[in-house]
């Protein structure tokens, strides 16, 4: 019996890294947006945080796009 440990290991590694990275990015984005909310409440702007947030969301969207590409491939 031949068990493909390498494939299993890479599934393990890739899943862990990608999940944690994606969730981290997304949480960063959310933190950025909620900073804007607070800044707006005090009449300030938080341009940097918002730009960063949208960059994070763009990266997440790219990951989803790559996922769809994988499904179609």
């Amino acid at each position: 019996m031949k068990i493909d440990w390498a494939a299993l290991g890479s599934v393990f590694g890739v899943s862990l890294v990608v999940t944690v990275a994606l969730v981290a990015l997304f949480t960063l984005g959310i933190t950025g947006l909620s900073r804007r909310e607070r800044a707006a409440a005090q009449g300030q702007s938080a341009a940097l945080a918002v730009t960063g947030a949208y960059a994070c969301f763009a990266a997440c969207a790219a990951a989803v796009g790559y996922g769809i590409y994988l499904i179609m491939a």
Binding site: T19, V20, L22, T27, T31, S34, E37
Partner: peptide
């Protein structure tokens, strides 16, 4: 399960300042 557990821990820790409608 492992991936979800780590991700959950992380998002709670990183997102503790995030609240309100946006989050």
């Amino acid at each position: 399960g492992l991936a979800a557990m780590l991700a959950t821990r992380l998002t709670y820790r990183m997102g503790r300042n995030a609240d309100g409608k946006a989050s």
